[in-house]
Every structure is written in structure tokens, then in C-alpha cells.
């Protein structure tokens, strides 16, 4: 040990000079980014308000009175979107994990299951969501007898979302499961864990960690696609906006609905960025390159 007290060590003048320089660099780059942002904003703004039709567009899309008048109804519809989103996320997670596991099963006895699962993902990744919505939304009620109570459009819409998104998300999970190094599986089996336990305790937790950024991306896409259930007649934010638009002869309610969806997705996007950055920091401990 040295005689000097290390915790009370004062930085040398060289280090203080370096810190001052780095501080100046930081201030400089912040100033440059602020200036370039302001310039870009001014240019964009000037370009838009100088277009010949701006006054008309402003009136039909950005009418403050219509905005506040339409907000309560659109908000009510948006709450329905949120509920659909909750159920859809839960359903997608369950179905896609099952599909992913089925597709990674080895052994000839599982061939029919594997085949069905891959046929399913091929089919539903190929089908446009809007077609699935129509097929489920109008086809399933057709199966019902004349006296039976109709299944609500919201339920059918949610089912269609789950069917389509599970196909995508199961592929993400499958990629994650296959990205876990085989040695992890060997180590788990060497401890005597069964195939199922190995999958549940060792492989899936690592797979989920690997694919979380991709999963969040699909989740963000889903938050917007819940708005498509409006095509089946469910009064969600989009449908409510449509009704309000007809009432006011003004498109501002669509802007209201759009804004609500954006506000919903921003925290999820930030969360994804934060989580991805944390994963990256963990994998590269130290190092500034």
C-alpha cells in the first residue's frame, strides 16, 4: 500500500485539463445539435405553412374546437383498444410460445405437430391481417346457428389479431431458442434435467432475453394494429373517430385518435431502447469502443 490515502486522492492538473476539455466538447456538441434542430424545425415549418392549401388543411385536420369535442368519444373507443391490446398480448404470448416449442421438438413422432405448426406460421404470416379480420369476423358468425347469441365483433377481432401475431412472434421465439448455445442444453441434461425442464428452466429464459428487443418491436406494431378491429364494427378509437368525423364534417377526430396511439407507443419504444441498451452494457462490460 502507498502512504497516501487513495480515497482522498485529488486529480492531477493534467486530468483536470482533460476533464475540462471533455466538458467543453460536450457543451459544444449539445449546442450544435440544438442549433441544427432549431434550423430544421424552422425550415420544415416555413415550408408547410407556405404551401397554398395550408389554411384549408389546418381547418379540416387541426380544428381545436373539434379536437376537444371529439376527444371524449375517441378516448372511450381508445379504452376499448387498450383492453383488446391486453388480451391480444396475453393470447399471443401463450400461443406463440407453444408454436415455437412445437417447432423445435425433435423426433419423428412429433412430425404431424411440427408440420401443423410450420404450416400455421407460413399461412398466417402470408395472410394480410385485414383479410384474417374479415374471415374471422364474418366467417365465424356464419358457423353459428340462427338462434344463438352473436359473438361480439371485439372478441372476433381480438382472435384474428392473436392468430396473425402469434405466427410472427413464434418465429421470433424459435430464433431465440435456436440461438441458445447447444452447450447450455448439454450442461442442463448432464445435471439430469428432462427435455421439458431444460427448455423451461434453461433454454427459454435465455431465449427470451435474446429476443426481447425483437418482441418489443412486434408489440409496438400490435399496439397500432388493434385499431384495425374497427373494420368489424367494434367502436374503438378509429371507429369513434370515423363517427365523429362524419358528425363534424372535419377530419380532426382522426388526428385525435392518431395522437392517442402515438402517446401509447412512446413509452413502450423508450422502454425497448432502455432495455436494449442495458443488455448491450451487460454483454460488453467496460470498454468504450
Amino acid at each position: 500500500m502507498t502512504s497516501t490515502d487513495e480515497t482522498a486522492r485529488q486529480p492531477s492538473s493534467i486530468e483536470l485539463g482533460r476533464r475540462a476539455f471533455r466538458r467543453r466538447q460536450t457543451i459544444r456538441s449539445v449546442a450544435i445539435s440544438a442549433a441544427s434542430t432549431v434550423v430544421l424545425a424552422v425550415v420544415l415549418w416555413a415550408t408547410i405553412i407556405n404551401t397554398p392549401g395550408w389554411a384549408r388543411v389546418q381547418q379540416t385536420f387541426f380544428d381545436p374546437e373539434v379536437f376537444w369535442a371529439a376527444l371524449p368519444r375517441v378516448w372511450d373507443g381508445f379504452l376499448l383498444n387498450l383492453r383488446v391490446l391486453g388480451f391480444a398480448v396475453a393470447g399471443v404470448l401463450v400461443l406463440s410460445v407453444i408454436l415455437a416449442i412445437v417447432r423445435t421438438l425433435r423426433g419423428p413422432i412429433f412430425f404431424p405437430l411440427r408440420f401443423l405448426a410450420s404450416a400455421y406460421t407460413d399461412l398466417f404470416r402470408g395472410l394480410p391481417l385485414i383479410i384474417v379480420l374479415y374471415l374471422v369476423g364474418y366467417g365465424v358468425p356464419g358457423l353459428q346457428g340462427p338462434g344463438e347469441a352473436r359473438i361480439p365483433a371485439v372478441v372476433l377481432g381480438t382472435v384474428a389479431l392473436i392468430l396473425t401475431y402469434s405466427a410472427y412472434v413464434s418465429e421470433v421465439f424459435r430464433a431465440g431458442i435456436e440461438a441458445v448455445h447447444p452447450s447450455q442444453r448439454l450442461a442442463a441434461r448432464s445435471l439430469g434435467l428432462s427435455h421439458g425442464k431444460t427448455l423451461r428452466l434453461i433454454v427459454l429464459p435465455q431465449a427470451v432475453r435474446k429476443v426481447t428487443p425483437a418482441l418489443m418491436n412486434d408489440f409496438i406494431a400490435l399496439t397500432k394494429d388493434v385499431g384495425l378491429i374497427s373494420v368489424l364494427g367494434a367502436v374503438d378509437a378509429v371507429r369513434a373517430a370515423q363517427i365523429e368525423t362524419a358528425k363534424f364534417f372535419n377530419f380532426t377526430p382522426y388526428v385525435v385518435a392518431g395522437l392517442l396511439f402515438v402517446i401509447l407507443s412512446i413509452p413502450i419504444i423508450r422502454l425497448t431502447d432502455w432495455y436494449t441498451a442495458r443488455l448491450r452494457d451487460r454483454e460488453q462490460i467496460g470498454g468504450i469502443v
Binding site: 486529480p11 493534467i14 486530468e15 467496460g286 470498454g287 468504450i288 469502443v289
Partner: peptide
Amino acid sequence: RTINLLERIDDG
């Protein structure tokens, strides 16, 4: 790693 500037030193 500090010699190769892969780690930033705190002093010196």
C-alpha cells in the same frame, strides 16, 4: 486496455 485506449484512464 488503457494503453490501447480501450479503457479511459481516470488520471495520469
